[in-house]
């Protein structure tokens, strides 16, 4: 066998083994790579996490209200379940400008005994849709506006 062919086989076999190892690693890592739990994910857990974790999903339309100027309450939903969230902006800072009803958000904090998620940080999530304001206005007017769902 020519050395060149031999090296070609090395590279081919190496890449095949690598792909296989990658596949194994992928299934081993599995869900541990999640950046956040959705409300539906939480419902499926035997017991909710006791430590701080990320809760992500859509901010339910019409759910955002303020106890006072800085105390924010809203509901995170993924269609399968909902979790009420409370966030103190005086203590932890204002929510990002992108934070809005019907849009994605990720909150970091702990689940309280009453089932309310006490957030210490709120991040806004952007979806895959990019369009100028005129286009969203037109879509909203024609009733074709669909809000992106979180992955």
């Amino acid at each position: 066998m020519k050395r060149k062919t031999q090296r070609m086989i090395y590279v081919g076999a190496g890449l095949a083994i690598l792909a296989f190892a990658g596949l194994l690693a992928f299934f081993a890592i599995g869900d541990n790579v999640r950046f956040f739990y959705s409300p539906g994910d939480l419902k499926q857990l035997a017991s909710p996490p006791t430590q701080s974790f990320h809760l992500g999903g859509l901010v339910k339309a019409g759910s955002v209200h303020k106890d006072n100027e800085m105390m924010l309450r809203f509901t995170v939903t993924d269609g399968a379940a909902e979790v009420p969230v409370v966030y103190d902006q005086t203590e932890h800072g204002l929510v990002p400008d992108l934070f809005a009803e019907g849009q994605g958000a990720v909150a970091e904090g702990k689940l309280g005994d009453d089932g309310t998620f006490v957030a210490t940080r709120v991040l806004a999530k952007h979806d895959e849709n990019y369009m100028p304001p005129e286009v969203t206005d037109a879509l909203k007017r024609s009733g074709e506006w669909q809000r992106g769902r979180p992955e």
Partner: peptide, 17 residues
């Protein structure tokens, strides 16, 4: 892994547009 990360897992990063 980079390309499909936003599809396979929950990420803060938005999916492909």
């Amino acid at each position: 892994v980079i390309h499909f990360s936003v599809q396979w897992w929950n990420t803060l990063h938005q999916p492909a547009s």
